[in-house]
């Protein structure tokens, strides 16, 4: 990797002003687990790498009443997976972070990097869309929050502007009576990236009647795909086996999945149906996790 300048700012403000000056030829590097592979394969050739490694102010995980979980962008996926706060407030999210790559990757990769990379075959984005999480982005122009439902644009493409850094992930608390589930389905080695990821968030009344249902599939398209009809099909009803089957069928038939080495479009359609069913079953209580 010849002739690449490395900038190592020590604060977010310094990083933002460097980024604003350097412009398009700069790539941000945090854990480097994705970026270094892209460099080695010569998919990108930036003139400058802006390392966020010194921004210790972005390494925090806390919970705030009325806001939810706040995870600094530089927190490693491993730390998020093992955090007692994350495990307490969003056990499914902790488990999902634990499904990324392998432990060596998770020790280096960061929560902010994972979202900013926007790899279509990644686990956290799918669940975080279902949880209605938000990303906080900063630039010298100011700060804004982006709902993850609007954050992903296409393959490796987000709504982040070139001068913006993802500084924080905010995951709101689940509504009372809600349970979530995430399934990573791999079609090859157990360490493969998902062929299909499936997140379900289910909210029920004490009577058992469903008040809301969200289903999001990952790795089947350029960006996470939410089944828009899920809530309407489930609302006011008990999530019976036949209703689960009906929703799963509708979701699968509504998606036009991509084909890659992990499975053809036809295969992914079958798997979306199966995993949507299993995720709803897990969320509705058959599973040990909420």
């Amino acid at each position: 990797m010849p002739n690449i300048k490395l900038s190592q700012p020590n604060s977010v403000d310094e990083a933002l002003s460097l980024l604003a000056k350097e412009g398009d030829q700069t790539k941000i590097i945090a854990g480097g687990t994705a970026l270094v592979i892209m460099l080695k394969n010569r998919l990108i050739s930036p003139s400058t790498l802006l390392s966020l490694g010194g921004l210790n102010e972005l390494r925090y995980i806390r919970h705030e009443a009325g806001v939810g979980l706040r995870i600094g962008g530089l927190v490693t996926i491993r730390d998020a997976e093992n955090s007692s706060v994350v495990r307490d407030k969003h056990p499914t999210l902790a488990l999902t972070f634990g499904k990324v790559g392998n432990v060596r990757v998770r020790n280096a990769a960061t929560v902010g990097g994972n979202l900013s990379e926007a790899d279509y075959a990644s686990d956290p984005p799918c669940l975080l869309v279902a949880l209605r999480a938000r990303a906080r982005a900063r630039s010298i122009r100011g700060e804004r929050e982006i709902s993850l439902t609007d954050f992903f644009k296409g393959f490796y493409e987000t709504t982040l502007a070139p001068d913006e850094i993802l500084t924080e992930l905010i995951v709101p608390d689940l509504a009372p009576g809600s349970r979530s589930a995430y399934i990573k389905y791999v079609s090859r080695s157990s360490e493969d990236r998902p062929c299909v990821g499936m997140a379900a968030v289910l909210t029920t009344e004490p009577s058992g009647a469903c008040t809301d249902l969200r289903l999001v599939a990952g790795a089947v398209s350029e960006i996470p795909v939410e089944f828009a009809g899920a809530g309407a099909m489930a609302r006011g009803k008990h999530l019976s086996d036949s209703l689960i089957q009906e929703i799963a069928e509708s979701f699968a038939s509504s998606v036009d999945p991509l084909s890659d080495l992990r499975g053809s479009a036809w295969y992914r359609k079958q798997i979306i149906r199966v995993m949507a069913r299993r995720a709803m079953q897990q969320a509705s209580g058959a599973s040990q996790f909420n």
């Binding site: 592979i37 394969n41 090859r188 080695s189 157990s190 360490e191 493969d192 990236r193 080495l261």
Partner: peptide, 15 residues
């Protein structure tokens, strides 16, 4: 088109 161990799959310990 898959000349790396991310795209060309070998068994992992879990397998």
């Amino acid at each position: 088109t898959n000349p790396n161990l991310s795209d060309y799959m070998l068994p992992s310990f879990e397998d």
